[in-house]
Design a protein around this nucleic acid. Structure first.
Lengths: 136, 136
DNA sequence: CTGTGTGCAAACACTTTGCAGGTGT
DNA sequence: ACACCTGCAAAGTGTTTGCACACAG
């Protein structure tokens, strides 16, 4: 599906910035931070526009936030989510060598028994180590 | 054990700022961010000093970093760690109601089978929801 | 006394907000 | 035409760095 159709499907107007950002997210295996995007975008968009684009995508459910140990927000496409049924309970892996964080879509976060009175709504599991590309 | 002894045990000089910050961390169940500390400290220390104190504690292994979904760094005492043997593989729970993040020391992160070539070194599991205090 | 902790000033990085003007449908 | 996206300016927040002085051991 082309970018425009995908955007329309999420009730978003197709604009240059959105198409570019979406393209970047679609062509990368790993999660991207705002600065990753800023550096890799061809045409230069205003920082603010990129921030707003990411926020919009997030709100509409096109992308999900990926936890990071250093505080920078990273984002990745929602591959399994429909518009209504969100499901990001897969494991994220951050490589300490190349610095990239990828979604391990096939690996789900196990159920955890919480103490009485605790209600879980969302789970995020970040594993850090060395990825298969950097493995020697 | 008093604060001074604990500090000395980690080869740290005992100073007013360190004692205060350590005291705060010891008297709270939940993880504290820099601004939490800044607000709750009696005597006012310079922001920078608190940042450096936290970094020092982190380096020496007195505290560990707690992941947060909003990018602010939070810290909690290492309760199970000896100086050599670090072990933070417990679950963290963030309550969306009170905003506090606590260490569920008794709940360990399950083993995860990673794809071939991936080497796990550290795991962080953050569960978000409603804690037992805010549960109605 | 000596190394290192502290406070101050400043810089840096990341993110948000307000507003005016431009663009997609 | 209208809603809304974009760019610019500015401000807010979190964090780091350099330097001179103060303090703990």
């Amino acid at each position: 599906m082309d970018h425009k159709k995908l955007l329309n499907q999420f009730k978003l107007k197709s604009t240059p910035c959105r198409s570019e950002v979406l393209m970047l997210l679609r062509t990368h295996e790993h999660a991207l931070s705002h600065s990753d995007i800023e550096q890799q975008v061809d045409r230069s968009f205003d920082r603010v526009t990129v921030y707003r684009t990411l926020k919009t995508f997030l709100d509409k459910g096109l992308i999900h936030k990926v936890l990071d140990d250093e505080g920078v927000s990273k984002y990745a496409l929602c591959s399994e989510c429909s518009k209504e049924n969100h499901n990001h309970e897969h494991v994220h892996f951050k490589c300490e060598s190349c610095g990239q964080t990828q979604c391990l879509d096939n690996i789900r976060i196990p159920e955890i028994d919480l103490p009485a009175g605790f209600l879980a709504k969302e789970k995020n599991l970040l594993i850090q180590g060395v990825c298969d590309q950097c493995d020697q």
